[in-house]
Amino acid sequence: MKLQNIKLAVLLLFAIGLTSCEKDIAAYNDEARVYFFERNTDLSQTRISYKSFTFLLLPLDVTRDTFLVRVKIMGDKSTSDRVVRGRTITTGTTAKEGTHYQFIDGIVPADSIYGYIPVVLLRTADIRDTSVSLNLGIAATKDFQPGVGEDSSIVLNWSDNVVKPSNWDGIISLTYYFGTYSAAKWRFIIATTGKDKFPLQQSGRVPPAPGEYTSMAMLDLNALLKAALKAYNDSHDPDLTDEFGQLVTFPL
């Protein structure tokens, strides 16, 4: 009996001893840091390391656009806005700062753990037929040091070039509504409509599938484009001309 009590006591002590292994959660005592926090919407919120942008969907007179990259802080929230800023990581960067992009200050708002680093992308002539990349890092500011690990960089890629749609030519095709293809015309269509895909209803005998453009819809786009082209030509000299030296026109 006595031996049993001793065994029980030893077991109890061992269990108590195990509880001492619980880890203390240390407070963050380092300086404030910030890291990129672009995540996919899947359950595990996988990391996004590459983002792209096209100027194509913007009106032709738009020459710059500000791209925002989401960041998250390390450390405590602040009661005031704090400044964040991007920097160039030369490795993997083909764009030229000042020519293709500019950095401006962004903020992490007060009482927030998230903010955005802005990069001003410039619509230059050379990106009409190529794309450029920026390996974006985080610059040290008065408020933040760059974070550490894989989220300390992200690649941005942007362009203003066009690719001829696969359904431009053929029996049921965009030719009827848009005419002969040219990159200048396609660029104008995209800039005017804000869309770069026009899947066509394949048969009038069946209801149009979601997202498909019917003949009536395309004819209305044709009218819209003709009016927009007239407005453009009335305010520009010379009239809109394509890469083959031909005036851009629309049929019908």
Binding site: P207, P208, T214, L219, A223, L224
Partner: peptide, 17 residues
Amino acid sequence: FYTTTYETDALFGGAVP
């Protein structure tokens, strides 16, 4: 004006200029 038999396509485009 328009011509169609599908309700989802029976939408008026811009006014005739």
